[in-house]
């Protein structure tokens, strides 16, 4: 297991956002958390990246306990997040945003860095075309690509993607999901949070369904996509 979450509890004040959840992300997979608004998907992801404090439980990354490590140090360990709502640095250019993604890297003058930049620009040719454009002037889809590209620039072992399809046109959603598969095939493990369950399940190895802060179902993407109860609740009846 690349990532192991055990008995995780997270509170917002007195409200329990996450209640005792446990799951793992095997190396090389796409693992998805699906669930309705407020089920605790984003909170789980933010806790893995360190933005939320843990009340109880533990998070292990490559066997190492990272439960109380600050978010900026988790990046160095190889965890990178593309946050909900993209959160690009809208006053910076595309290039500067990508450079921010590589903030912790010490090899930014080397060929290895160039290679990674080329790889990201290869995944998202649109970013290459707009490399000197101010991020805030780009469309939502382009900003989503930038947020994902930025997260890849740190060369993460584990990429956390929070609702990458949110607010995008159907054609763009297809494109984003096939890029996620491509990123995974290039060797990056992905933990995905999605409301678009149909697309997400199709692309994931493992999936967990969250309801009001607890995991209620676990299975492979295929299993869950074929499950009648899941279909009714999350897939609008068709996959």
């Amino acid at each position: 297991m690349l990532l192991e979450v055990e008995g995780l509890c997270v509170n917002y004040g007195h409200i329990e956002a996450i209640r005792d959840i446990s799951f793992g992300v095997p190396e090389g997979t796409v693992t998805t958390l699906i669930g309705a608004n407020g089920a605790g998907k984003t909170t789980t992801l933010k806790t893995v990246s360190g933005l939320r404090k843990v009340r109880a439980g533990s998070i292990r990354f490559e066997g190492k306990d990272i439960t109380s490590i600050e978010p900026y140090n988790r990046v160095k360990l190889g965890i990178s997040q593309s946050p909900e709502g993209r959160r690009c640095f809208i006053g910076m250019t595309v290039r500067e945003n990508l450079e921010m993604g590589a903030f912790t890297r010490k090899d930014r003058k080397t060929a290895a860095y160039r290679e990674d930049l080329d790889r990201v620009l290869g995944l998202f040719p649109r970013l290459d075309e707009r490399i000197d454009q101010i991020a805030g002037t780009m469309s939502g889809g382009e900003q989503q690509m930038l947020a994902m590209g930025r997260a890849l620039m740190s060369r993460p072992r584990l990429l956390l993607l929070d609702e990458p399809s949110m607010g995008l046109a159907p054609k763009l959603i297809q494109q984003i999901f096939s890029i996620i598969t491509e990123i995974n095939e290039q060797g990056t493990t992905v933990l995905l949070v999605e409301q678009n369950a149909a697309q997400a399940l199709k692309r994931s190895h493992d999936a967990h369904i969250l309801e009001t802060g607890s995991i209620v179902r676990t299975g492979t993407g295929k299993e869950l996509a074929g499950d009648p109860a899941v279909k009714a609740a999350y897939l609008g009846g068709d996959v």
Binding site: Y72, S80, I90, F103, S154
Partner: peptide, 15 residues
């Protein structure tokens, strides 16, 4: 600059 604009996201970048 990144912290000025969005401290939380900046910390996700390793700042």
């Amino acid at each position: 600059r990144a912290t000025a604009q969005d401290p939380e996201t900046a910390s996700l970048m390793g700042v």
